[in-house]
Amino acid sequence: MDKKYSIKDIAQLSGVSVATVSRVINDNGRFSEETRKKVLKVIKETGYQTNFSAKNLRMNKSFSVGILVPDISNYFFATVVQKIEKILFKCGYSTIICNTARDEDKELAYLKMLESKGIDGLIVISGAKAFDINKVSSSSKIPFICIDRKPKDKKNTIFIASDHYQGALDATDSLFNSGSKHPIIATHKHYSSSGADRLRGFKDSLEKHGLPFDTSRNQITLTTENTTIKMEKVLKSQPEIDGIFAINDTVAIEVLSALLKLGKSVPNDIKLIGFDDEPQDKHTYPTLSSVKQDTDRIAQVAVENLIGLINSTGITSESIIIPVELMPRDSTL
């Protein structure tokens, strides 16, 4: 059997004290570069591994972060989670990713599990209701931040979001600027704060261009019903529709497919724009205009602020809004 080396063995083989080995491992305290290289060389040669359980108990830290995500198959969510995980790993943290499937009971079960594992922090991504950390227990002290989901209590956390309102306003304005006179918004049944902001941006663009918003005439909600059948009904009752802002790219691509099946030319008959700028937008026919979210910036800001809260060096009660970018393509040109 391979020998299991202790920290005392590493100190003896390196010719330094146990305290010095500990300082090198934790990169904390004073030691020379020569000493650091010598200790690390011995660690590499022996295959020594730090007893992280004991270390974590001493520091009262688990070096783990929980991430609650409503739908890991969603491109935006998956991209943000992947980038957050990558940054956290570089910072010495492992992640526990929990896909709630937009189920409140499942979310609560995950929260209790994460608390029992002693996570150092929590990142909550999107959701229909304001996030309440006290659902776990009234005494929960887990530092957390919210992305695209407003916290119930803003005092001890940070809210991070793309500028969904401005993105929707710009997207709808681009339909008007391309010649559309009667645009509608295509939404889905899932409610979120980001969706509400996008709807508000659409409404304000209509108002800016002198059109009143009427839910029955300016909004189509796609559910389990066949999108083509629903689009056909809407276009028959409102043949003047000549532009569609889809609340995300998944909805936009469903609408695009339906329009082409119905013999509509995009963008000649109806102009179409989505939101999220998914990779497939460049490969649809016609290519899909969209609004791009800065996922790199969202992930970086989220991790920086969470670690600040974990280390009690961060600022709370803050909302951080990340700018978006309009990506015009053939579907609106």
Rank of each mutant, 00 (worst) to 15 (best):
I7E: 07
I10P: 10
A11V: 05
L13H: 01
D27E: 15
S32Q: 07
V39P: 10
V39C: 11
I43R: 01
K44V: 01
K44W: 00
N51A: 15
F52M: 15
F52C: 04
F63K: 09
V65I: 15
S73Y: 13
F76M: 15
K83C: 09
L88V: 10
K90S: 13
T100A: 11
A101F: 08
M113Q: 07
S116M: 03
I119L: 02
V124C: 07
I133N: 01
S137H: 15
I142H: 04
F144M: 04
F144G: 07
C146P: 07
D153K: 02
Y165T: 10
Y165V: 08
D170L: 15
A171H: 06
S174V: 05
L175V: 03
G179F: 05
G179W: 03
K181V: 02
I184Q: 01
K208H: 06
H209A: 09
R217F: 04
N218F: 09
I220G: 00
T223E: 15
N226M: 04
T227N: 08
I229Y: 12
K230Q: 14
E232S: 14
K233S: 07
K233F: 05
F245Q: 01
A246S: 13
T250L: 14
V251P: 03
A252V: 11
L262P: 04
V266D: 04
D277Y: 02
E278I: 13
T295W: 00
Q300D: 12
A302Q: 14
L306E: 13
T313V: 09
G314M: 04
I315C: 11
S317L: 03
I320A: 07
I322G: 00
P323E: 14
V324G: 12
D330T: 05
T332F: 00
